[in-house]
Computed example of a mutant assay.
Amino acid sequence: MLYVTHLLSPLLMLVLPLFLGFLLHRRLKVGWSLFGVGALTFIGSQLLHIPFNAGLTALLANKVVPAPPGDWTLWVNAAVLGLSAGLFEEVARYLVYRFGTNSARTWRGGLMFGAGHGGVEAMIVGALAGLAAMSMIALRARGASAAPLPPELSAQLTAYWSHPWYYPLLGSLERVFVLCFHLSGAVLVLQVFTRRSLLWLGAAILWHAVFDAVALYTLATVGLYWTEAVIGVGALLSVGMVFALKPARVEVVAQRR
């Protein structure tokens, strides 16, 4: 059964974002192009976000930037990583709203935009998880007939196959929760234009920073199961934000700010 769930979880990560896009397309009558715009926005943000985090890590390793005190290391790391994710991803959303397509500037369009943003992240994670699963299956299939594996790789293989059958499905469940978060992020940034206040961009960055930082801190302190529960609460709050910010009337495209 563990073989099945190790392969099923990546498949769900690939399919669920497309299913969400299909629902939005059918129910809200919004075009698929915004899903692609959201996907490209995420990829573009990571072209800057990943080098930034790598550079910051190098500065800490070389003691160019002072490291936080020992008791504060985990808190500071979680806060910095959460804030960097919020800055790069939410500012990227803002720039697309500001200089990109006007069709994203409605509640419905923002949802499809957010689905593409979070969806491509889920699909990338799913593809990597699928490759890892196939690699681990191949290594396990080698059996005793092949040369012994290096100790570190052997330990990883043992750990990978020691979990209960449902454990791999937590990854796909987490992607559902994160998709909900990205819908809220897209709708929050949209308020910059519908309500004409940059404070909403700050709110989106802060919400992103808190969501990621709490997840990172929880994972490091109480483990994966509690982390998924915490992310699940964040997903419920995200869905609440999405519907709280739903306009009462038929939407028109917001004016450029």
Rank of each mutant, 00 (worst) to 15 (best):
L87F: 15
L199V: 14
A186H: 09
V239I: 15
K29W: 15
P164H: 06
L40Y: 01
L34T: 02
H49P: 08
L201V: 01
F243K: 00
E121P: 04
G110H: 05
G70D: 12
V178D: 05
Y3W: 08
H6R: 13
A129Y: 15
A229Y: 15
G234H: 01
T218D: 04
V222A: 07
H117C: 00
W32R: 05
M123S: 07
G116W: 00
G82Y: 03
L131N: 06
R27H: 10
W161N: 08
P151Y: 05
A209G: 03
L219G: 12
L95I: 04
W75V: 09
V230S: 02
S145R: 13
G114K: 02
H208E: 01
V15K: 08
Y225E: 13
L40K: 08
S135Q: 11
G240Y: 10
H6I: 01
R175P: 14
L201D: 03
G240D: 04
L7H: 00
E121N: 04
M13K: 11
E90V: 05
V96R: 00
G44S: 00
L153T: 10
E152V: 14
F99K: 15
V189C: 04
G130F: 12
F19I: 14
E90R: 03
H117K: 01
T57L: 13
T158N: 11
F88L: 04
A186F: 08
F181R: 08
L139Q: 07
P66A: 14
G109T: 05
L23T: 07
L153A: 09
A244C: 09
V233H: 05
E90C: 12
L74P: 00
L224C: 07
F181M: 14
A254M: 06
G118K: 09
L170F: 14
L149Y: 01
M13H: 02
G171P: 11
I43L: 15
I137K: 12
H182M: 03
P51N: 03
A78M: 02
F113Q: 03
V96A: 12
H25G: 08
P68A: 05
R93N: 07
V120G: 02
V214T: 08
E152I: 08
L59W: 10
D71I: 06
L28V: 11
G110V: 02
L81K: 12
R93Y: 15
G70K: 03
R26Q: 13
L7T: 13
G126H: 03
N102H: 13
P151G: 06
C180Q: 10
L131W: 07
L81G: 11
V239W: 09
